[in-house]
Design a protein around this nucleic acid. Structure first.
Lengths: 196, 196, 196, 196
DNA sequence: GATGAATGAGCTTTCATTCAT
DNA sequence: GATGAATGAAAGCTCATTCAT
């Protein structure tokens, strides 16, 4: 078994356990059991409990960034790009629900309590939106007074809050993809230059 | 000292301590020390640690709802109402920063792990936005296809994510009130009926 | 209300609560609630929790001694006296079941852990049996080699162990009075001089 | 060190500590210190404080039963068997004084407060006496009207109450073995068929 | 590298007792 | 005398982390 296999097994187990119980209620032994390794083995791959969370966060956000950037490469229309971003983001909920739950929670917890940790990967993920907005302004689609630094957070926040609803309630009257498009629609209408 | 004084002293102390250390890292003795009461005294007013958090949440959200509803009473224009809501919401960050931090965190934690707890007060707070949107649709300001149930969460999420930035980073290049207005502007433009 | 009334109300409440939960699991506030007084009031009549138990023990054993001595006064036959003692002792179970349960438990606990406390009342109660045995030896009914100091404890132990069965199991196939007589019968047959 | 060693070390430490302080006054840390293990180690072998007590009780009564049954195997005379039982029972006081003290106390406590716990081992120990009595009735030694179910408890109670005296007072004017024989003598005389 | 038994610091909660009213 | 809010010491139990095997 390659080293990276154990590392990944533990990470995947941690996602499951954190999603189920939350970071503070999760025990190392839970993760060890889920990953089918000994408790002590976890400390061969991670420094401590926090480290599992942070590694997990960085690694998984990293993968998400790669995937969404790949999707966006094929597109040049900023309006469509924003929709792709939104649909992909919300799609994570369907495909990696447990991961989304963990990222949601930990986004609000870890970076506050692990002071040393600057959440650069997450900022990189947000900046994709800022770049799209800037591109849209350069191409004359979006109003010049729109502030990309605000939109990137507002857009993410809007999508994320909807995710939270699903993560909690399991079922909802809203369809995931439709919701992503509806939110995108509002932001696009909110940002476009009006010809009237 | 009136009974309510002790209750309130403990609540306020809990807000400070939870904001500083987070719910799980906060010790009862921290709260007791901050409130200048004995550890045991806390249990005369609250059933357990979770109960402090939930009571605090309900009470404070309740007060916020009362205040924002009072502000909205004087206004009938849905566009201005939405801005009032946003400005007031973001204003909390200036006036009750610690409280906002606690509400932020706990919104993502407690209702997931305290299954019995249905966060009705929070939903009531969100529904204010839904009501404004519906009102705007009735008056013909907002497009009929806009879904109030999505907007209420998207709008809250957008504002809240901006709050999170401030709560974390202490200083920011963005002005709180300006940001509230900018986000409102995008949503309003996104929702209004266009006459072209 | 006379002073002694409060004292007695507390004692009676303590009997109930100790019987229900045991000494260590009983809370002062339980007793206070049962006695319908404030927690603090108990400390006007008793020094501490142990003191309630000891006072209760002394007082109630004292009453039992008085009653059984009164019954025995009318009788001179040692054989009948022993039966009277046994039937009265077991009868307590019917009339003051809760008290018996408390005395049972505490007999095994308190005098071990409250070193200062010499359980003189209890010894006085046992000595009634020793006196009956000695009387029976003097009258020539009982064998001279019988040791009253052992019989008093063995007889009490035998009766008490039966009590314990009832106190625990609530219902039993054995009748209380019949059992008292059966045990007495064995001890009497065991002690009498045989004429063969 | 074998697993069973730790388990046994803790059990033996618990016997010492419970005998010294009683179950409720004994702290887990006392037992841990006595056993020379960490507090947490105790919870690797026992579920909780009660569990130590119950395990201890079951295990030790189990051993006592085995030993006395072995002794009784060699004997067929019910009269001698009863004496063997009594002498062995009282002998425990000499050889395992602390254990006897613990069993004494807990017999009066645990099964009352740990409702789930049915004290089957103890009943098995008592039933040895009932079996002897029945055997004696079958062989025509003991009177037919003697009730084994009562004798088993009365006999145990008589012996146990004497034990209690020693356990408490440390020294006594009575010799342990002589006392066992004296009590047995009374019960045997009390039960035998008289030829007059 | 892998294991999992052992550690012991840490924390919530309880409750006997006090004392200002 | 009576009250009951307040106190704070105390203890059972958990669990992240270590380390001998």
């Amino acid at each position: 078994m390659r080293v990276s296999d154990k590392h990944q097994k533990i990470t995947q187990a941690a996602v499951k356990v954190f999603a189920r119980k939350g970071f503070f209620n999760a025990r190392i032994s839970d993760i060890a059991k889920e990953a089918k390794v000994a408790d002590g083995t976890i400390y061969l791959y991670f420094n401590n409990k926090y480290d599992i969370l942070i590694s997990l966060f960085e690694d998984e956000i990293g993968k998400i960034i790669l995937r969404v950037k790949l999707l966006l490469e094929k597109e040049t229309d900023p309006l469509k790009m924003l929709e792709i971003y939104a649909v992909h983001h919300m799609g994570l909920l369907r495909d990696q629900r447990e991961l989304v739950e963990v990222l949601q929670m930990e986004l609000r917890q870890s970076n506050k309590f692990i002071k040393e940790y600057r959440n650069t990967k997450f900022i990189e993920y947000l900046d994709i939106v800022a770049d799209i907005v800037r591109k849209g302004q350069e191409s004359g689609h979006f109003r010049q007074e729109i502030m990309p630094g605000i939109v990137k957070r507002a857009f993410f926040g809007a999508l994320d809050e909807m995710s939270r609803l699903w993560a909690l309630s399991a079922k909802s009257k809203y369809n995931v993809e439709e919701t992503a498009k509806h939110i995108t629609d509002i932001f696009l209408h909110g940002m476009v230059v009006r010809n009237s």
